[in-house]
Simulated assay, not measured.
Amino acid sequence: MKWDPEKYTQFSSHRDRPFFDLTARIAADSPRRVVDLGCGTGVLTAALAARWPQAQVTGVDSSEDMIAQAQALEGAPSNLEFVHGNIEDWEPEAGTDVVVSNAALQWVPGHQELLRRWAKQLDDGAWLAVQVPGNFTAPSHVLMRELAASAAWAPKLAGVLRQADAVDEPVDYLALFSEAGFDADVWETSYAQVLPGADPVLEWVRGTALRPVIDALSAEDFAVFEAEYAALLRTAYPQHDWGTVFPFRRLFMVGRKQG
C-alpha cells in the first residue's frame, strides 16, 4: 500500500498525541536498544532518541516514501537510524530493551501472534508499548465499508478494507500481555478532536483508512467513490462554526517483561 507522508502529517497535532501518551508510561531508565515499528516520517522516533541519548534508536517502516522522509530528517540525533522493512519480519536483537509500535499493528492481520512472538523473544526487563486505533465501529469506518460493499462498488473493492475486528478489545490485550509474562498496563482513551476546514474527516481518512481504496481504484473511479463518501461523512460529522468534532478512540498497552 502506498503512503503519502505529507497527507499523513496534515493533522500531526492530533495524530502525535497518542504517541506521547503511550511512551510516557514506559519507565525504562537507560535502555540499550530502542525500536519504533511503523515509524512513519520518523519525527516521533526522533523524540525517543532525544529521550534516551545513550541508546541506539531504530525506526522501521514498510513504506519506502516514509523511510526516505525519515532518513532526510533535519537535526536528527546521532543515535538514530531508519531502515526499510516489514513489521511481520522484524525480530528483536539482543539488548533490545524498548519496543514501540504506534498506530501500525492494526494494518497487520494476526498481529496478536506477533506480540506473543516478540514477548517470548525479548529479554527479561524489556518494555513493549503499543497503541492501535479502536475506532473501527465509528461512522467514518462503517460508512466507508458499507459504501464499498454496495452493489456499485463491491466488484472492485471486495476484501480491500479492514473489518471491525481489525483490533481486539483492551481486556483481550491485557490477557495477552499478562499470559506472556508482562506486568501490563492497558487502557483506552477517546479524544474529542476538533478538526478545522471543509470536509476535515475526509481529509483525515485520506491519510490513513482510505489508502486501500485509493490504491484499488482508478483515479476516475476514486473521484466518484470519494464524492459519495464525503456526502455521507458530512451528515455523520456536521460542521460547526468552530470546527468539526471527530471522536477518536485509541487503545494502549504497555508492559515490562518479568524476570
Rank of each mutant, 00 (worst) to 15 (best):
V142D: 05
A148G: 11
A149F: 02
E169C: 09
L157W: 00
P200H: 04
G181F: 04
S190P: 00
G159V: 08
E220H: 11
P200A: 02
L161A: 08
L157Q: 06
A230L: 11
T189I: 14
A230N: 10
E220V: 14
A166N: 05
Q163K: 14
Q163W: 07
R145V: 06
Y191W: 09
L174Q: 13
G159K: 05
A223E: 15
V142I: 13
V186M: 06
P212M: 08
D185A: 12
V224D: 15
I214A: 05
E228M: 13
F182N: 04
E203S: 11
L202M: 10
A166F: 07
V142N: 03
A164F: 09
R145S: 08
A230P: 04
W204T: 05
A149D: 13
P196S: 03
W204A: 01
S140D: 09
E146G: 05
H141I: 00
S190V: 15
V205M: 08
E228F: 12
Y229A: 11
A198Y: 08
L176S: 03
V171Q: 13
I214H: 04
F182E: 03
V213A: 01
S178K: 10
I214S: 05
D215A: 15
A149R: 14
P196A: 04
W187H: 02
A158Q: 14
P155K: 07
L157P: 03
A138T: 00
S178L: 08
A227Q: 15
D185E: 14
Y229I: 11
L161D: 08
E169H: 13
V194A: 06
S190E: 15
K156I: 00
Y229P: 04
A180Y: 05
